[in-house]
Design a binder for these strands. Structure first.
Lengths: 326, 326
DNA sequence: TTGAAAGCGCTAACAC
DNA sequence: GTGTTAGCGCTTTCAA
């Protein structure tokens, strides 16, 4: 319970608080003898600086916030790990918040980031048009979006080319003989969803297939939404000969729906999907998978963010990594 | 970028900073007219109090830390949601940190919690004997462990009776005719793992079955570990007629191993497992599942923690919720 | 009821 | 090279 302050350390070491501060921070040089005395006192007392008090002076914190839309999604998990590694290499730590694709929660966590004066924020916005980072911008807290883009502000973003990846997956399905490809889209307000749908359309066009409205059903990027959407598509006659699902969680739901219809893949129907699924039951062997370099996305997002935190100025940058078709 | 302080608000409202503070916090009553002027100024300026400065005076923060061992595990996800709901109801926010079952990372995040002066911490310790919360205790920051217990300190804990749950699952398997039940245990340093193994043994004993060393293989609570352990068990002759897996991620690995051996469940071999698996492919129909009230665990952990944060004193409490066999 | 003033723990500016 | 001083933004005595 003891509250050890810089004064206590100074007292024990027989120096002034300023000297203690200089030793602990990269300050001007301090006589070796004093350095040792200070460090010794710090050790004995178990002193750790109060970061709030420090912030009051320096305006510099070493915490990055990562605000993501769905913590259950392995996409983000791996991304967070990449961000953590890059951040801790630079002496920063990372705290997470989960918005559940809920704009209200998202705004609350943005407020927390402001209130805690976080050094920067990595954000996967719940909505491209309704998410507002104004609170952060006003305070000069830099933001990098991952995966998704933000329409409401020109900020850095790290992600993949979703249009192209989706298109390639469609071409692959067509190569496998599919002609009636159902598409399970994501929320209309999320850019990845928009882009993937666009890629789907391009893929059809490039293959000389007509776009059919009834073959596109919108889901919510979650398991149940995928299941419902798949049921809708499977009820169509003639039945689609392939399902292209625009994120991993919905794919789980779609797979359940297939089972419920007694359909096997890739025998009865082909399956393609976005995002890694290694965490599921070896599903990956039988489906066309678009996997994103999630760790790398997190790493680069953090690095970009840290450059902004350090005060570098450059036009908003879009880092586009490549997704691969497995 | 503008830095609006309480002084600016006071200036605009024509009152003293103290009055602004009184309006914003449940201070002594302030004349209605001034209240309005202050609130108006706050609104016009978009003022938000600097929480660091406030903390320096009050020593009270409204952030709870949740430090968990594996963010990919849905067990924790749902738990976090429960904690968040309880916390935000009380005006607290929750930040997450992921330790990956790594003691070093865990310690770093405990340091972050201290440095940030978090009001309290919910922890799922990576090790019952080597995880140290001394840093937190010294600062008087209360801790509640979830799921797992901590040997190194007597703190509150919320979880289920793992011994009994495991025992019941074994009895269920025996009821289904199993006589040679393989057990995939978790890390030796995690109490849930120890307890579940104990329950397994009790279950065997209660059923009049002998405990056989070779039928127990230790995994790491992750997918690959489960797969390796299952392979080891399936190589035994005679082959086990059931596999009891002590957590959900390992169950995914075990299921993969079964597929690789060309074995079907529950036809060729029975399966029982801890933790919810609804997020996987409808796996749940065919296996004996022990599900924990994860949301409730999180909720109660947060509530207990908040009572400690509020200064309530009572002996370390163990809240044991009941797991159910599906 | 309200304002003035002190001080939380720290670091930056200025003296020495 | 080191100590003294001031002040970050806020809340909380203490007076008025």
């Amino acid at each position: 319970m003891s509250r050890i302050t810089i004064k206590d350390v100074a007292g024990l070491a027989g120096v002034s608080p300023a000297t203690v501060s200089r030793v602990l921070n990269h300050g001007p040089t301090v006589a070796e003898e004093l350095r040792v005395r200070v460090l010794d006192a710090v050790g004995r007392l178990g002193y750790r600086p109060n970061s709030q008090a420090r912030f009051l002076r320096t305006r510099a914190t070493t915490v990055l916030g990562v605000i993501i839309s769905d913590i259950t999604n392995p996409f983000f998990t791996s991304m967070v790990r990449g961000a953590e590694d890059a951040a801790s290499k630079a002496g920063y730590s990372v705290v997470l918040a989960n918005t559940d694709e809920d704009l209200g929660k998202e705004q609350r966590y943005i407020e927390v980031a402001v209130a805690e004066n976080m050094a920067g924020v990595i954000l996967s916005p719940a909505s491209t048009s309704r998410t507002s980072i104004a609170l952060l911008s006003e305070r000069g807290i830099p933001v990098v979006t991952v995966d998704r883009r933000l329409q409401t502000a020109k900020v850095d973003r790290v992600g993949v080319n979703n249009v192209r990846a989706a298109q390639e997956a469609v071409l692959r399905l067509v190569d496998q003989g599919c002609r009636r490809i159902g598409f399970i889209a994501g929320p209309a307000e999320v850019t990845t969803s928009v882009d993937r749908l666009a890629g789907y359309k391009h893929g059809l066009k490039a293959s000389g297939l007509a776009y059919r409205n009834e073959l596109v059903v919108r889901g919510d990027y979650r398991i149940e939404g995928g299941r419902a959407a798949a049921h809708a598509l499977l009820a169509l006659r003639p039945r689609p000969d392939a399902l292209f699902v625009s994120n991993n969680l919905m794919t789980l739901g779609a797979a359940t729906a297939l089972r419920e219809h007694g359909l096997g893949y890739p025998g009865d129907i082909k399956l393609a999907a976005f995002d890694d699924m290694s965490w599921t039951l070896g599903l990956s062997d039988e489906i066309t998978l678009i996997s994103q370099p999630t760790y790398e996305i997190g790493r680069q997002a953090a690095e970009l963010l840290l450059r902004r935190v350090a005060g570098e100025q450059f036009p908003a940058r879009h880092v586009v990594l490549s997704a691969s078709l497995a």
